[in-house]
Design a protein around this nucleic acid. Structure first.
Lengths: 205, 205
DNA sequence: AGCGCATACGTACCTACAGTACGTTTACCC
DNA sequence: GGGTAAACGTACTGTAGGTACGTATGCGCT
């Protein structure tokens, strides 16, 4: 591909202000990902933002940081959505369903971004995947630990359990997004059944 | 980097036999990954195998297929390890612990390969991640469905549950590999507690 | 007002790597 | 013994991440 000319001439732009700030770059990156899939190039993102690559590097700092920033965005959307879904609800199975459904719906609403975040780039993505997961897992672990203590149980399992639940949601979402024969609520019910009651369901007989 | 000269001259090798076959290429790829991390180049793998890139393409067929083949290898090792661990065991919590521990131990024994398989490359890795997961999830779903039916429950949840369990193990493994303050058996116990009894643990009081 | 320095860019380049066209050597078969 | 197929390395192309450098504008200082 020929080098993209951005239509502007070199030099500081008239007005003395930055043409785009960090948030606008991330917005452009999201649009580019939605349009071109998880494999977008930095140049395509820069073009979408109306600037050139060095500006991306000045605002964000390379492909790794871009991936981290976008993953953090998605994680925060999920956390916010989940928090508002279970606000005021007593701990219990129905709250768990709300938690799971809110998570699934947010993922579906940010489909391309989710696919990008879960392994789209070429970086040390195991590390990033873990980083993304920890953003969701950390608040969950805090809640879980607190609840375990309140009900008289050992809170030591909270961290492992939170990663377990986040991992369960991650892969299940990926699977779900490629099959769609199930509503978010339907899948949330199935997962809630496993998480709340466990495999140890006694025989009907 | 300069083009790697492999020491051999062009032309069909004396003896008329292939210098390396598909399995040897995959072995070399594993060694290269163990040595250089998940970001190894195809050239480095070719060098490790003692051949050049076009041979890799002839045997395997590009980066995507290489990733798939390596992921399939890991998946099969995990499945085999798990099957031999629970062979002859009655369904129950202790069998679940064995299942989880065998899974974790195999992942730990193939650390670099696992990191490579869970997002190391630059391809459509969401698809590959799902492909890898399905290799573990499919047999699990069959067992789960069978067991659900045998105990008089709806087997429709089996597929979602199997992906849930595999995803749980995937992310938990990733987290565990970066912290190591827990034995495989210890973590397996914590996960078994969640999976077997669920969150609905009644208050002690 | 005019001069210098910091700021905010785009252009053009370098490098690395996936993927491929082509030539070269050996084996096999009639 | 000659021709074809198999097996392989060399050398190239395209693309994408990352960077050095030149250029135009704003701002403070004299």
């Amino acid at each position: 591909m020929v080098t993209v000319s951005s239509g502007r001439r070199p030099g500081r732009p008239a007005g003395g202000k930055q043409v785009v700030d960090r948030e606008l770059v991330l917005d452009a990156a999201e649009r580019a990902i939605r349009r071109d899939g998880p494999l977008v190039s930095l140049e395509a993102i820069a073009l979408e933002a109306g600037v050139t690559k060095p500006v991306i590097y000045a605002r964000i700092g390379g492909r790794t940081e871009l991936s981290n920033a976008l993953s953090a965005r998605l994680a925060e959307r999920i956390v916010q959505s989940v928090l508002s879904a279970i606000a005021g609800q007593p701990v219990g199975r129905s709250a768990l369903v709300l938690f799971l459904a809110a998570n699934l719906e947010t993922v579906a609403a940010n489909r391309e971004l989710f696919l990008y975040a879960t392994g789209g780039s070429s970086d040390d993505s195991p590390q990033r995947s873990l980083y993304l997961a920890s953003q969701s897992a950390a608040p969950l672990a805090a809640q879980l630990g607190q609840w375990r203590t309140a009900t008289g149980h050992d809170p030591a399992v909270a961290e492992a359990w939170s990663y377990a639940i986040v991992g369960m949601l991650q892969l299940t979402s990926l699977w779900w997004l490629n099959q769609v024969e199930l509503t978010a609520h339907g899948l949330a019910e199935q997962l809630a059944e496993l998480l709340w009651s466990g495999l140890r369901t006694p025989p009907i007989a």
